[in-house]
């Protein structure tokens, strides 16, 4: 398990161009293989917002902890850190050659475009899970609408885009609304 975790997060780290959100979209792809559910993933993205620190570190720690306890968290976190520690000294040694490289620039441009699609896809999957109660598009028939979650989701989206209200507050507010809805 530990080797599997370490390998998974090495891969996620090296492919994670664009940091946290890019890695979140890569994590989804690895979730099933690690035995985690879409609901646990939704909780991860919520905790990412509530706990300070880089999203990538938060995510590696969370998944490592769920899969392999404290040692799992340590292995996953160290693995996701490897690219930074390797790249920085390497770059500083041969700064001039890397900067002038036209290939790198074009590759990064394309990766960022693909990332937009990937992150939209993750958001859409989370939408299906939380609003419609299913894990895959193919099983859309078996789902049913959760109206309160839909309202909360649209509300948070609107308040964040329109008034730039801090996601931390919106997350806590959503929790409060859900909590109160139990007593209605």
């Amino acid at each position: 398990m530990l080797i599997n975790l370490g390998w998974t997060f090495l891969k996620i780290g090296w492919l994670g161009f664009g940091g946290g959100y890019a890695m979140l979209s890569l994590i989804v792809a690895e979730m099933q293989q690690l035995g985690l559910t879409m609901t646990q993933y939704a909780d991860l993205t919520a905790l990412d917002l509530l706990i300070p620190g880089p999203i990538a570190i938060n995510s590696a720690t969370y998944i490592g902890q769920l899969c392999g306890g404290f040692s799992g968290a340590l292995v996953a976190t160290i693995a996701v850190c490897v690219p930074s520690v390797v790249i920085v000294p390497f770059f500083m040694k041969r700064e001039q050659t890397i900067r002038a490289d036209p290939y790198l620039d074009q590759m990064l441009k394309l990766v960022k475009i693909v990332l937009v699609g990937l992150i939209f896809a993750v958001a859409f999957s989370l939408l299906l899970t939380t609003i419609w109660g299913i894990d895959q598009v193919q099983s859309w028939r078996s789902g049913h609408l959760a109206p309160l979650n839909l309202v909360v989701m649209l509300g948070a989206l609107g308040l964040n885009l329109r008034y730039r209200i801090n996601p931390v507050w919106l997350t806590l507010l959503a929790g409060l609304i859900g909590w109160l809805s139990y007593y209605l």
Binding site: Y21, D43, A46, A123, L127, V152, M153, A156, G178, W179
Partner: peptide, 23 residues
């Protein structure tokens, strides 16, 4: 349970926001 469900729903919102920004 409903509190967690509502929190999970907002996580979809913030990923959409991140995707919009990147787009």
């Amino acid at each position: 349970l409903p509190a967690l469900a509502a929190i999970r729903a907002t996580s979809a919102s913030f990923l959409f926001v991140a995707a919009f920004d990147l787009a």
